[in-house]
Structures are given as structure tokens and as C-alpha cells.
Design a binder for these strands. Structure first.
Lengths: 368, 368
DNA sequence: TTCTATTGTGAGAACGTTCGCACAATCGGA
DNA sequence: TCCGATTGTGCGAACGTTCTCACAATAGAA
């Protein structure tokens, strides 16, 4: 009980027992170079006998490869990141890679700190959901120092790194079009819409309509608003700014306030579009507490298909993101780069699927 | 573009630029030993100028500590593991530790493979939800080789390692008692109940009643059944074996079959107890499709408090596990062991909370 | 003065691998 | 016979740190 680690069996001891040099033992165990069948057997047997376990640190130090990819997620606890992570981990495992996980809580400082730690641990590649799409010096620096990066869910402006995102505009626009087709003209939307660096929301709406914004540079919730606006424009309808609940922060409380405000006003919307899972859960809660019936009092389409949406009384029509696929795609991209694959920056934009259920119907008489 | 890594700035170069030995530079940057203020300044400035970033691999190789803890979860995608992982990651981060993640899908082979990889990567400690509670040679070996282990959710028999679990018996027994108190006498239960090595379910029930089973050695779903039986026994009631839906495997399909079978039989139970999140979701789905009303047609208590349970029409009464706390506790335990803390094996058994909502009422006339 | 403690420095050996190199032995073909 | 290719081996130098020494300089105490 005196010594803490009985772990100490190195390749040297294996070599000694097998009666060969460490180089030969290394060749057998590492699977590189030539070795005679005879020695192969001897070394393997000795390794077995001693319970030899290679020290990947030492190997990595010399090869410069750790076979580890770092992941900076927002919050693993959310189904969104959990599913993505699952996809990443599966692909990584299949290639013998480990996954070093951190979460940023969408806080820049924490992201910087996390990236720092991961780089010091010499990860071979980084998958990150960046929380600041404009600055992010740390990511530029990491990329410049040669660490492959794959961005997920959103993209940093001007960062030369691959990305995997969802066609948020298309998904939102699809849903809104669906509601418009059902006859709705007053469609509410609740979304985070935290920061937009170029001005207030009026400006944003105007600029989308005049076509001077590239959605690729936006945060998801803004992209979804973009889709909302686009769908209206395509239908030749004006936007009523009051129907857009801008929560401003990713919190249950703020979301609840915004949603309740939107749904309890005298001339409330006939349909609601929630821009992410948090908003959907809050909205559902608000709808229940206001005693509104879906879809008679209110039609509803939610971004993110959560498990409960399928077994509510009328099921909730929802936009399903291919989350594990996004994770898998990002892992494949990063592994390809690690494997030395060159070529153009890759920007994969995945498509949603719309799970049609029972939460949409035409607006009821006297309320349309 | 020719060289892949511009990363190459080592402590030697920093030392050279500062005009000191690598030993001195190491002392400044590593924060050990003595250095003059003057040299401290010079070294720091040089490090800054060169953009020096320590290589933790090299440090770990020599110190024997990686400041990394390995985690083997069942499936990160499930809210159960996701929340636990969140707790682990938070505590780890606060201490400057990284988290290396793998999932086993509750498959022994995969768990063995994962543990192997983690050990080769020289993790300082291992947090694992073991999928085999009886054999698990790999865990015994790991423990023997000096790697601290914390078991989570369940315990391997005879493995000397700390653990963090939930009082599953107590939680189940509480819920069943609640239902019995409401007047229910035919309480159904659906649970995984995959393997029990000592015989069939009759035997299990008998042995629980005669008191010859130590619940600590059981898998959670069996512990929950244990609680179910205990509560009945305490109330002086016999167990109707037909009310126990043994799914046998952790799959939606099997769960659905078992649940539908249980709920559609002529003399169906007046109350239902679901033993985990999967069973709850499936049960909810089955209840909806059978067009049963909660709580008039059926009372319901679920193990695991999922977000949707609070905003269904009548809320679902549920057992909430303190998941992030379990993660935090396990991380604290492992860090303490890594820090060299000796002493007795620790087995923390956390308590559930029962979230009372509207899914329980007295059985209705003609059905009791 | 002389001793001991404190503070500081650098050379060089770890840590456990992989890798370059030199060197052999064997084989087949010209 | 000689040659080159193929297969196999061991020595020792990496990799980028930390850590053990040996050794100084200074200061205060005896």
C-alpha cells in the first residue's frame, strides 16, 4: 500500500523480458517497421505477462498527435448539444479518437479559457460552437497555429475554418409559409435575438427586406427571424414588429415574460412560432397557464423537435434538426483535416425536416 | 503553407530569448522553485512575445499527472447522463481538470474498450456507470493498478471504489406508498429489469419478501422493483406478478409492447409506476393512443422528472433525481482521491425529491 | 570568523515512447 | 561472384517538460 501506482510497466521491461531491444519491442507493440515472427510472439507474450499498457502521452509527445479532439459546447445538458456530442463521440470512437469536452455556457471568457486548455493538452482538432461571431481572436490564433477547427451551429466572420450549420432561414421560412398558407396573418414569434451589432430590430427588418444582409454571418435566432421576414415578404405581407417577442437573453424567466406579454395582449397573434427548445417549453407552459387551446385558440410551430411534442394531445408540429448527423458531419470534417486533407474550406449546411402534427389549423372566426 | 504546425515555440526558445537556462524559465512558467524578480519579468516577457503555450503532454509525462478525468457514460444523449456529465464537467473545470468522455451504450465490450483507451491516455481518475455489476475484471484491474474510480448510478460487487448512487428503493417505495394511500390496490409497473443473475422474477419477489437480498448490489430497475415490493409488504398487501411489466431490454419498441399489453388488458391497473425516463415517455405515448385520461382512468407516477411533465394538462407527479448533484459529488470524490486523500471507501446515496403534480387521484368507482 | 539557512542558478538526467541511422543477414537474379 | 532489394535488429537521439543536483551568493546568527 506504500506506492501509489503499481502501473509502472514500460516498454523497456517488456523488451527486457522478451530479450530484445526496446526498439524491437516498440516496433511490435506500435505496429511499425519490420519484426520477425519469432520476436513478435516473444514480445507479445511478455507484454501480456506483464500487463503492459502503452503510455499514449509519450507516444503523442514524439508523434505530435494525440488522437484527441476537443469540443467546446454551449451546455451539454441541453438536448441540442447532447445529441451533437453523441454524433461526434461515435465517429471519433470509430477512428480511435478520444473526445475532450468543455462547455462555455455561451460565455466568451469561458470559451477562451476552454480553448486554451484544450490547446495546451495538444488536441489534434477543435470542434466549437463559437459564442462570438465577430471577434474571436483566440480562434483565429488557434487556426493560425495550425490546429484544424470546425465550427458548429454558427460561424465566426472571416475565420477560415470549416463549418456545419443548419439552414435556419429555410427552416423558419418553411414553417411561416406553412402558417400563412393555413390563413394566419398575425403570426407571433419568440426568440432569443440577443446581440446584433449593426443596430436595432427595425433596422434589421428593413435591411433584410432591402436584401443587404448575408444570413450566413448571423446567429441562429437572427437567421430564424430572417426566415420569418423572408416568408412574409414572399407572400407580400408587411411585418408587424409588435408580433416579435425579443427575449434578449437565454433565460426561462425572460422568455416567460416575453411570451406571456405576447399571448395575453388583447389583439394577440393567431399563431406562434418559437425559435428554439427553451422558447418552446416556456411557450407550452404559458399556453397551459393561459388556458389556451391548441390549435383552436392558437396554432403553434416549434423549432427543435423535443420528445414530448409527439405525445401531447394534439401533437406539436415541429422543425427537427438532424443533430447527431451534425455532430457526425463535424467529426468527419475534423478527422479529414487531421488526416491532412487539404482543399477548400467546407461549409456544410444541413436541412431540417418538418414534423407535421396537429398544432396547426386555420385561424378561427372572429379572431382572424 | 509548407509546414503544418507553426506551433513550435518551446520553453527552450523562451529561455534563450530571456537569456536564462531552460531550468529557470521552467521555474517561472511552471511556478515552482525560486527565481529572482528580474528573471521572472524577463521570462514572462519573452513568453508573451513568442506566444508561448506550455505542452501539457510533456509536463504530464514527467509529473505522472494529466489533470484529466475519464468518464464512461451510458449514453450522453439521454438527459440522465447529460445532466450528470454537466455536474462533473463543472467541478472538474473549477479545478483545472479536463474531461475525457466516452459512452458505452451499456455494452460491456464497449465499456472495456473505453476504459482501456482512457487508461492509456493516462487519466488521473475514472468515473464510470458500470454496465456489469458482477464481473468487471477490467475495473478491478484498473483499481488495482492505482487508478481511482468512482462508480455512478450502480455498483460493481466487491469492487473497492467509491460510489454515488440514488436511494432507488426509497424513491420507489415512497411513490408506491403514495399511490396506496390514495386507495390504489392494483398498481402496474413497467421497468427494464434486464438481468438478474439469481433466477426469475418469482424468485426475486420471494427473496425480497423473505429479506435475503441486499438491494445495494442490484441494478437500478431492480432496486425500484424492490421498493415497489417493500411498499406493498409494508402495507400488508400481496404482489400480483402480472402487474409487473418486465421490458427486458432498454428499447422503445419492447417498452411499448409491454406497456400496451399491461394497459389494454381487461382488468388493467388503476395506477401506473414507470421506472425510468424511457418508460415514462413510452407510457405517455401509450396512454394517449389508448385514449386514457389521467388521472381519472389511470393515476401515474414517473421515475425521472422530465421537462414536459410539468406542463402537461394535469402535471405528472414524478421522482426527481438530483442529477447534476450526483455528477458534482462524483467529481468531488474522484478529485479528492486524486489529491491523495485516503480513508474508507465512500458510498454516497443521494435522496430523490417527489414532485407532486396532478396525475394521482383515488381510483374511480367500478374500477377499484 | 564560521556556520547555517535562504535564495537563486544552470547542467543534465529523467519520463516512455518513436524514429533515424548503421549494420547484418538472406535471397534471387545477372 | 557480385549486386541490390528486402527484412530484421539495436543504438542512441529526439519530443518538451520537470526535477535532482551541485554550486554560489548573501545574510544573519553564533
Amino acid at each position: 500500500m506504500a506506492d501509489k501506482r503499481a502501473d509502472k510497466v514500460t516498454i523497456t521491461e517488456v523488451a527486457k523480458l522478451a530479450g530484445v531491444s526496446t526498439a524491437t519491442a516498440g516496433r511490435v507493440l506500435g505496429g511499425y517497421g519490420y519484426t520477425s515472427e519469432e520476436n513478435k510472439e516473444k514480445v507479445r507474450r511478455s507484454a501480456e505477462a506483464l500487463g503492459y499498457r502503452p503510455n499514449l502521452l509519450a507516444r503523442s509527445l514524439i508523434t505530435g498527435k494525440t488522437k484527441t479532439i476537443g469540443v467546446v459546447a454551449g451546455d451539454i445538458q441541453s438536448p441540442f448539444y447532447a445529441s451533437i456530442l453523441r454524433g461526434i463521440a461515435d465517429v471519433a470512437r470509430a477512428q480511435g479518437f478520444g473526445v475532450l469536452l468543455t462547455n462555455s455556457d455561451e460565455l466568451l471568457d469561458r470559451e477562451i479559457e476552454a480553448v486554451q486548455l484544450l490547446l495546451e493538452k495538444q488536441i489534434d482538432g477543435l470542434i466549437v460552437a463559437p459564442c462570438d461571431t465577430s471577434g474571436s481572436q483566440h480562434l483565429h490564433a488557434a487556426a493560425a497555429s495550425g490546429c484544424p477547427i470546425v465550427q458548429i451551429d454558427r460561424r465566426v466572420n472571416g475565420l477560415s475554418a470549416d463549418s456545419v450549420t443548419l439552414d435556419n432561414c429555410g427552416a423558419a421560412s418553411d414553417s411561416i409559409t406553412q402558417l400563412l398558407a393555413a390563413g394566419h396573418r398575425r403570426i407571433g414569434m419568440v426568440a432569443e435575438l440577443e446581440r446584433w451589432e449593426f443596430g436595432d430590430m427595425e433596422t434589421f427588418i428593413d435591411r433584410v427586406i432591402e436584401g443587404s444582409i448575408d444570413p450566413a454571418s448571423l446567429f441562429p435566432s437572427w437567421q430564424r427571424l430572417f426566415g420569418y421576414i423572408e416568408a412574409h415578404r414572399a407572400a407580400g405581407l408587411l411585418i408587424d414588429r409588435n408580433l416579435i417577442g425579443r427575449v434578449g437573453t437565454y433565460s426561462v424567466k425572460a422568455a416567460r415574460t416575453a411570451t406571456m406579454e405576447l399571448l395575453s395582449r388583447p389583439n394577440r397573434p393567431t399563431a406562434l412560432f418559437t425559435a428554439d427548445g427553451l422558447m418552446s417549453a416556456v411557450a407550452m407552459d404559458a399556453i397551459t397557464s393561459l388556458d389556451l387551446q391548441i390549435p383552436t385558440d392558437l396554432s403553434l410551430i416549434c423549432f427543435d423537435d423535443l420528445d414530448w411534442m409527439s405525445f401531447l394531445k394534439p401533437g406539436i408540429t415541429a422543425i427537427a434538426q438532424p443533430l447527431t448527423e451534425m455532430g457526425e458531419a463535424s467529426a468527419r470534417l475534423i478527422l479529414a483535416r487531421i488526416g491532412g486533407e487539404g482543399g477548400e474550406e467546407q461549409h456544410q449546411v444541413l436541412k431540417h425536416t418538418l414534423a407535421l402534427r396537429g398544432s396547426v389549423m386555420a385561424p378561427q372566426a372572429g379572431r382572424a
